[in-house]
Amino acid sequence: MSRSIKKGPYVPAKLAARVEKQKRSGAREPLKTWYRACVVVPDFVNHTFLVHNGKTFIKVFVTEDMVGHRLGEFAATRTFRGHSGRKAKEAAAAAPAAG
């Protein structure tokens, strides 16, 4: 079941306040946050967040298209580097640094 519209999008007050503060001061430093479940609202556009993925912080620059998604969707919690085997070894040799 989806969230009641009455409540509005889930944006922790703390984080909203920090974005608001940054907006007023004009600073553009990345905001470190653990609020992965926080919904991206239009106020966030053009701000940068450092979203925790359980281990490190992933830099997320919010664009207009991201509104309505949650911060956590942009900071993957799992890394899949491929299966082992001959093919994997060849690929690793050809392109060592692949995202």
């Binding site: 664009t63 298209d65 991201m66 969707e73 942009f74 993957a76």
Partner: peptide, 15 residues
């Protein structure tokens, strides 16, 4: 759009 914003769903579509 999902692919472009690099969100989880977009990544799943990509792979």
């Amino acid at each position: 759009r999902l692919k472009e914003i690099r969100c989880y769903r977009g990544m799943r579509h990509r792979v």
